[in-house]
């Protein structure tokens, strides 16, 4: 293990501990709710990174995947009257199926065509859930979805849920990290640059693309299931193209392909609108303008931009020092 990696791992451990003690100091339920939403969003972005970040294919249907996970878990919990954990397993299965199904079009259509396909998919899902009134309650939504519980311990407050989601997100982060920085992550990335060359290396690119889509869909569906039991209420009008767009914005702000960036993207995009609330009516437009300017001026993501700026200042400072040193020696 190199020294650099050791530092990285130490950083991550410190971050983990810091995040674990958060609810001990934050007693405000509203903040904890925002934290929980960050954790759920982070799971989605970690998944989206595989498809839009690494293989470079535009997936604008994340809200549809998210909705399928949420409804699958909520419906089975309600109608089969079983634990939400089974719902979570079902969400994983649903994610796997969506991944296999959505992966197929990604073999045939590329670029904007794929973004249109995924938008169409998400819209069909949303309209289906709003129209199956007998089962889903239609546009009224589903209420009183049971929270998670473990051996009789109910995760029914924001603080308790924070720990649960934290563990799940950390696990999701671990898996994503392991995949992205392995030969699989490498082959996903190479697919973005040049698919023909990958195929000529003996790689079944159809299989790899479907794998990437399946990972992405499982993350999305799991996050959806968590969301349903976290909110206790779901409504099809939440799962719009606006939601899909938000997930992609998180990915962009964090930087395409970077796992740590994914987390920062989720944090920034979830918190920034909350911080801009003082602008009242103007907060959404301000937020959008900030994001648009960011997309135009920092195409590698904000995290990267900050890191670069940091490096530049360090360089300038050390250059100055070097100059001063020379001056002294002279």
């Amino acid at each position: 293990m190199t020294k650099k990696m050791k530092i990285r791992i130490a950083e991550i451990i410190i971050l983990l501990i810091a995040l674990l003690v958060v609810p001990l100091f934050v007693k405000n339920n509203y903040y904890l709710l925002v934290f929980n939403r960050i954790l759920i969003n982070a799971i989605v972005v970690l998944g989206l990174n595989f498809i839009t970040g690494l293989t470079g294919q535009m997936n604008l249907g994340m809200a549809g995947i998210f909705a399928l996970g949420a409804y699958a878990s909520a419906l089975i919990t309600r109608y089969a009257n079983i634990s939400p954990w089974v719902g979570l397993l079902l969400a994983i299965a649903v994610g796997w199926v969506i991944g296999q199904c959505l992966g197929y079009p990604s073999l045939r259509v590329k670029g904007v065509y794929l973004s249109l396909t995924t938008i169409g998919f998400a819209e069909v899902i949303r309209l289906m859930f709003s129209n199956l009134t007998d089962i889903t309650g239609g546009t009224q939504g589903m209420r009183n979805i049971e929270p998670y519980s473990l051996f009789g311990f109910k995760f029914d407050t924001q603080g308790k849920m924070y720990y649960l989601f934290f563990v799940i997100t950390a696990f999701g982060f671990f898996i994503a990290w392991r995949i992205v920085y392995s030969k699989w992550g490498r082959v996903f990335k190479s697919l973005r640059d040049n698919a023909e060359a990958v195929e000529m290396s003996g790689v079944d690119i159809a299989d790899v693309k479907i794998k990437a889509f399946t990972i992405c869909a499982i993350y999305g569906a799991v996050a959806g299931a968590l969301y349903a039991h976290f909110m206790g209420y779901i409504n099809p009008s939440t799962f719009t193209i606006d939601m899909s767009t938000n997930f992609v914005i998180m990915l962009l702000i964090g930087g395409l392909g970077s796992v740590i960036g994914n987390i920062f993207g989720a944090i920034i995009v979830t918190i920034l609108p909350e911080m801009l609330r003082f602008l009242d009516d103007y907060y959404l437009i301000t937020f959008s303008i900030i994001v648009l300017l960011g997309a135009i001026f920092f195409p590698n993501g904000w995290v990267d931009a900050v890191v670069r700026l940091g490096k530049k200042t360090i360089n300038i400072i050390s250059d100055k020092r070097a100059e001063n040193g020379k001056a002294v020696s002279r």
């Binding site: 030969k183 699989w184 290396s201 790689v203």
Partner: peptide
């Protein structure tokens, strides 16, 4: 047809993707 955003070593290593037989889940 190269992978321009990756390093030279990574470029070469993609060529050996199929030589490494470890599956996705075991790899994690």
């Amino acid at each position: 047809k190269i992978f321009s955003s990756m390093t030279v070593l990574e470029n070469i290593m993609v060529g050996g993707h199929e030589q490494a037989k470890l599956g996705l889940v075991r790899g994690v």
